[in-house]
Amino acid sequence: MVRINSKPLFALLLSLFSGSALAQLNLFACEPEYAALFKELAPEANVYSATTAKQDPHQVQARPSLISKLRRADLALCAGADLEVGWLPMLQMKANNAKMRPGGDGMLFASDFIDNLDQRDSVSRFDGDVHADGNPHMHFDPYRLLQVAKGVSQALAQTDPDNSASYQANLQRFEQKWQSAISTWEQKAAPLKGTKVIAYHSSFRYLYHWLGMQQVGDLEPKPGLPPSSSHLAKLVNIAKEQQPMAILVTGYQDPRGGEWLSSRTQVPLLILPMSVSEKDGINDLFDLYDTVIDSLLAVE
């Protein structure tokens, strides 16, 4: 009679079952930076991003494909602070997924895990496209992003308790690597402290706050409004007075105003990636930070 050691077989079956359970989770991210965070914390899950780095997350159509993805989602992660207010409520309604409804236990917002910069007691139409709950583009603050990661990891464990140990291990692995990267980034970016920029919108507000940079002018006359001729003329004077190192726009913003200002002031125009984009060789959050900081240093 041949005796079979059942322990290795049991371990293999347990591993396969665990991987299958993780793989069955459907995770929906409103923006690619949060899809990338999901992949760090739940690498075996099915992760879908509603937008790309070349799309303005303020303006998205509630397409049937998005409705279908949200309908099947176990967890969703969005920036919050009203960034997606123009399209997410419609998506939630049409998806008809109880977990994804406002207040549902599967609907997560990064802004709920942190203190947002630039919160306001009230806003009016006169202010333009501003958010009372603060600036929603917090993914360029590595410390705040780590807070979000901890909250998301806890939500994953609650959604899939059989694999809570795996999510905790993934968080610990990500946190260790992330903390090491922060130290490297801060040393590398030290020359950027005190530098000034003109930018389109407040897209990199958290980056400036983290690295000690200053936005001295905005290509938008008011948030959400395209640059006008009179406003650009004022920015020419601001550029002469403040001597910014660069004019910054993102991949989904119209560069023409920045190009005009650059041609009049000789301040270089720099198009920075707003999020993870595998098509552009930015495969994860680490690549995103590396690319942005290296791009700024190349100008500085």
Score class of each variant (00 low, 15 high):
69 K>A: 15
223 P>S: 01
219 L>W: 03
109 F>V: 00
71 R>T: 13
82 D>W: 08
130 V>F: 13
224 G>V: 00
276 V>P: 00
124 S>L: 08
272 L>C: 13
108 L>H: 07
244 P>G: 10
143 Y>E: 12
169 A>Q: 05
279 K>H: 07
185 W>P: 04
212 G>P: 05
103 G>V: 01
109 F>C: 03
87 W>V: 01
67 I>G: 04
56 D>R: 08
9 L>K: 09
155 A>E: 13
128 G>V: 10
194 G>V: 03
7 K>P: 11
234 K>W: 00
107 M>G: 06
21 A>T: 10
182 I>F: 06
42 A>N: 03
239 A>K: 01
29 A>P: 11
180 S>A: 15
200 Y>N: 13
250 T>S: 13
27 L>V: 12
298 A>I: 08
149 A>W: 02
235 L>H: 04
122 S>Y: 04
77 L>H: 08
113 F>A: 09
118 D>Q: 14
169 A>W: 00
22 L>P: 05
140 F>K: 05
227 P>Q: 00
167 Y>K: 03
4 I>W: 14
34 Y>C: 12
117 L>C: 07
64 P>K: 09
231 H>L: 00
99 K>S: 14
186 E>K: 13
251 G>S: 12
235 L>K: 02
178 W>S: 00
284 D>K: 01
129 D>N: 15
179 Q>I: 02
175 E>F: 01
200 Y>E: 07
274 M>F: 14
188 K>Q: 15
72 R>W: 07
70 L>G: 03
146 L>D: 02
167 Y>H: 02
248 L>W: 04
3 R>V: 15
264 R>W: 12
285 L>Y: 01
136 P>E: 14
201 H>V: 05
131 H>Q: 06
271 I>Y: 07
210 W>E: 06
51 T>F: 06
103 G>K: 02
143 Y>H: 10
215 Q>K: 15
22 L>Q: 14
234 K>L: 11
19 G>L: 15
250 T>M: 06
21 A>F: 08
168 Q>F: 01
72 R>E: 15
107 M>D: 12
239 A>C: 11
238 I>P: 06
205 R>V: 07
210 W>C: 07
212 G>A: 07
159 T>Y: 09
259 E>H: 11
216 V>D: 10
148 V>N: 00
16 L>N: 09
174 F>T: 03
57 P>I: 09
188 K>I: 02
11 A>M: 11
244 P>T: 10
193 K>P: 05
58 H>P: 04
191 P>D: 09
138 M>W: 11
253 Q>D: 03
73 A>M: 04
58 H>K: 06
222 K>S: 02
245 M>I: 12
13 L>E: 14
198 I>V: 15
223 P>Q: 01
213 M>I: 12
25 L>V: 11
219 L>P: 09
95 A>Y: 03
46 N>R: 15
6 S>P: 10
32 P>G: 10
275 S>E: 08
277 S>M: 05
195 T>C: 09
33 E>I: 14
208 Y>H: 15
207 L>S: 08
217 G>L: 05
16 L>T: 14
137 H>L: 12
106 G>D: 08
165 A>N: 10
